[in-house]
């Protein structure tokens, strides 16, 4: 059974449609990248998956259960969320942040148990932040902060993690750290990851690491194509999607691996020529 199954999904604010007729399914151990221009509705779709917004049409099933009939606590045990930019308020300790991932398992009037505390420490070790547990998370770098958010999502013990542009504000090294962590988690735990991203190259990165990867192109208010990165992320599709000229190049990074990359060239699509 698919971890996530979306059928004829449509959503709009009032009479203004954001997307409609979206169909897709995400399996265990799969990374599903949603690619599309700014404002195309990626985040709105994610909010529907998380049960924050309610679809106007169609259905979303998490492990076979219709999300419409589920409480926030039930949803949180099946699907967790890593925000694009977490707005920090109080300087909680790293471990205190990760413990919040246990909220769905904590009763009305109770606090996390010793077992929850052990889970928090083990997921911090998984993302390589075991030594940071007693540091205020406001003092971490952007990349480490994003890993804390991933650890918090892992603490929910959900089999699907939704990430909204998880590397949007990171430098190269931290971007690689986050991507490597995602790859390791998917390989080790058969987690499914749904990721909205502005970097289609991430999909090639996952594919190169031998992870089942799908790319959905979001345009014209729906998923216009879904398929493997090599098939979907073509020069023609990138041109249509972002209205730019781009090259897809292939470079051998080891004897048996070719790394594909999209290189944006210019936004002047009328000139028709690519250097």
């Amino acid at each position: 059974m698919a971890k996530v199954f979306v059928q004829g999904a449509g959503f709009g604010y009032g009479s203004q449609d954001v997307f409609n007729e979206i169909n897709c399914k995400i399996d265990s151990g799969e990374i599903f990248c949603i690619v599309g221009p700014n404002g195309c509705g990626k985040t709105t779709f994610i909010d529907c998956l998380l049960g924050i917004l309610k679809l106007n049409e169609g259905d979303i099933f998490l492990e076979g259960q219709n999300i419409k009939t589920m409480t926030p606590g039930e949803i949180a045990k099946l699907i967790s969320y890593v925000p694009q930019l977490h707005e920090k308020t109080f300087p909680y300790l790293v471990k205190e942040i990760v413990m919040m991932g246990r909220a769905a398992y904590t009763g009305w009037f109770s606090s996390p148990s010793k077992e929850d505390s052990e889970i928090a420490e083990s997921v911090l070790d998984m993302v390589g932040l075991g030594d940071f547990k007693n540091k205020p998370y406001t003092q971490l770098s952007g990349g480490e902060g994003q890993l804390v958010m991933i650890a918090r999502a892992l603490a929910q013990k959900a089999s699907v993690i939704v990430m909204d542009e998880p590397t949007a504000h990171l430098d190269f090294r931290h971007e690689m750290k986050v991507l490597e962590t995602i790859v390791k988690l998917v390989k080790d735990t058969r987690l499914s990851v749904i990721m909205a991203t502005h970097f289609p190259n991430h999909a090639f990165y996952f594919e190169n690491n031998r992870i089942p990867t799908s790319v959905a192109l979001m345009s014209d208010m729906t998923f216009s194509q879904i398929g493997s990165p090599s098939n979907v992320l073509s020069e023609a599709n990138i041109k249509k999607l972002y209205n730019i000229n781009a090259k897809v190049v292939s470079y051998p990074i080891s004897s048996d691996t070719e790394l594909k990359q999209i290189i944006p060239i210019n936004s002047n699509i009328d000139s028709g020529t690519i250097a």
Partner: peptide, 24 residues
């Protein structure tokens, strides 16, 4: 006092608290 730990979760903001499983 009974609900004190949930205030931590709510201080993450509406969207995050909700995805952590809280009826905000």
């Amino acid at each position: 006092i009974a609900l004190r730990w949930k205030i931590n979760v709510l201080s993450m903001g509406d969207k995050e608290a909700r995805t952590l499983g809280i009826n905000t």
